[in-house]
Design a protein around this nucleic acid. Structure first.
Length: 504
RNA sequence: GGGCCUAUAGCUCAGUCGGUAGAGCAACGGACUUUUAAUCCGUGGGUCGACGGUUCGAGCCCGUCUGGGCCCA
């Protein structure tokens, strides 16, 4: 509780007109003994319950059913002796309230007109009727303020700018139907994912987000500090190394859905914090885990769209059904550049190809990284329908086992949908000696200035030395799954994306 | 990292050639017992993102910075 408040006058003087007037109305209510924020108001049913109960009531009908309903006032039409208002509740259901002089009396009608503003939350008690125009309504005997809004709602007829929507999602949720449905889409997808995992006997675990070592992906971490332990801690960039410890311990089918943090740029498909699914299946491999991934995506589509064909917010349809296309990374590169490229193609040849394509080549890129960049340059945009890109370079995949036939290639796929990377999957590297060599190689890159390189996690290696069974593993971005299902940008799939503070 | 666009009333946006700041919704006052983006009459509301410059004069031209968006790498 704060006792120190600046003098009320200094606040009020600076406020814009509409905010000042609403604060004055709040003060006026208190002065007249009316609580603008009561501890409780009458409510006997939700608006949607009333809508369902009287789904087909004839025009100009009185039901005799007395109810107390609550909602936010989003439209107000005051006439001399009969006032109309539209109430809206959280899921977007609306119902009309009517206040007539002969039911509520002059005093109540006047207070309704002067005290109630757009945005206020009210409780109305009265009979459920239909108006002469057929609108299902509650004809008030009385009303009560449930909560006074001190800020005016934005114009309900013009969409808010993208920035305002993100900065004030609470207002976005009040005024924009799509914001409400998007907010409910995500939990529906999460539920579906967990059901799919459960049906396949996968167990959900939670592993550390604050980590002593960061690992499991190529990314720059957020760094923090523990006062109690007097040491640096990192926000995790991936849960991979802990989930593999689970598999060593005998949790043969394991998954985690939780937040990762990467200290990198933000754009329409990257957020500094993002939800990620990771899953490991003992005695599986990159193909079995690809099947699981497809089930997860297709079941999620079914859960929210009732079909494997999903309709994006702009009306475009995307077919996520059936068995998905597979292409080989190096074949795609070869086709894209018009000459044969394999994992054994020397880096100097790759550099020539990249230069010919007009790409800017970072001299720090290793051979595999350059091949991946060339792939993204020539093929990425064409991967609209779901496509598994199979066989990534082994030198950029330090946690993946080598391909059982192709030299220089790892048993790793990336799943592309709509031109972006949705998921990745491996046959996991389980030889602890090879794993150590790979991590030491990474640490060497790190010491040469590769900020995304992995660290040598000795405890992880010790776990591996206790023997991990042959395993398939996958990771999929939840926000990106939402993007693939809806066509929305990442900032629309996340309820409260990071925004820089407003300047005062 | 580079380029382009953008910031004006509570919200969404106009603002011509550099010459007193505009609209719709919202607000305020009034009329109206079947409205539903109600209607009609009237009124008020602005640090034009911030700082600097050019100019007799800047929302507008120039520079720097900040926020937002898009494209490229």
């Amino acid at each position: 509780m704060s006792n120190e408040q600046p003098p009320a006058s200094s606040i009020e003087d600076d406020l814009p007109e509409q905010l000042r007037i609403r604060r004055e109305k709040r003060a006026g209510l208190i002065e007249r003994g009316i609580e603008p924020y009561p501890v409780a108001v009458a409510r006997t049913a939700s608006l949607s319950e009333i809508r369902a109960k009287y789904a087909s009531l004839e025009t100009d009908t009185a039901t005799g059913d007395i109810q107390s309903l609550t909602g936010r006032v989003i439209f107000k039409r005051d006439t001399g002796k009969l006032c109309f208002a539209t109430l809206r509740e959280g899921d977007g259901t609306e119902l009309q309230a009517m206040l007539s002089l002969d039911k509520v009396g002059q005093e109540t009608l006047d207070s309704w007109k002067s005290d109630i503003d757009l945005g206020d939350i009210v409780s109305v008690t009265g009979e459920i009727i239909t108006s002469k125009r057929g609108e299902l309504s509650i004809l008030a005997n009385s009303y009560a303020m449930a909560a006074k809004s001190l800020r005016p709602l934005p114009n309900d007829h013009k969409p808010m700018s993208e920035e305002t929507r993100v900065r004030m999602r609470y207002v976005d949720l009040i005024v924009r139907p799509e914001a409400r449905s998007n907010a409910r889409l995500r939990p529906a997808v999460m539920k579906s994912l967990r059901e799919t995992f459960s049906a396949e006997n996968f167990i959900e675990v939670e592993t550390p987000m604050l980590q002593v070592m960061h690992g499991g992906a190529a990314a720059r971490p957020f760094k923090s500090f523990s006062n109690a332990y007097d040491m640096d801690l990192f926000l995790r960039i991936a849960p991979e190394l802990f989930l593999k410890r689970c598999v060593v311990g005998g949790i043969e089918r394991v998954f985690e859905i939780n937040r990762n943090f990467r200290n990198e740029g933000a754009d329409s498909s990257h957020s500094p914090e993002f939800a990620m699914i990771e899953s490991y299946q003992a005695y599986g491999d990159w193909r079995s885990i690809a099947d699981l991934t497809r089930s997860l995506v297709q079941n999620a589509a079914m859960a929210i769209a009732g079909s494997h064909v999903v309709t994006h917010h702009d009306g475009r349809q995307a077919d996520l059904g059936g068995k998905w296309k597979e292409i080989s990374l190096y074949e795609a590169i070869s086709q894209g550049v018009g000459e044969t490229v394999t994992a054994l193609t020397p880096i100097d040849d790759l550099k020539k190809i990249a230069t010919k394509l007009g790409m800017k080549v970072d001299p720090k890129w290793i051979t595999g990284k350059l091949a991946e960049e060339i792939f993204e340059h020539v093929a990425k945009d064409q991967l609209i329908e779901p496509t598994f890109v199979m066989g990534f370079p082994v030198d950029t995949s330090p946690l993946v086992r080598a391909h059982r036939e192709l030299p220089g290639v790892a048993e790793k796929w990336d799943l592309y949908v709509d031109g972006f990377e949705l998921a990745t999957g491996y046959s996991e590297l389980i030889d602890p000696v090879v794993q150590r060599d790979r991590l030491i190689e990474q640490a060497t890159l790190g010491s040469k200035g590769d900020l995304e390189a992995m660290q040598v996690d000795e405890d992880f290696l010790r776990a591996m030395e206790f023997a991990m069974p042959p395993t398939g593993g996958m990771g999929m971005g939840v926000d990106r799954l939402l993007m693939a299902l809806t066509g929305l940008g990442i900032r629309e799939t996340i309820l409260f994306p990071l925004v820089k503070p407003e300047i005062e």
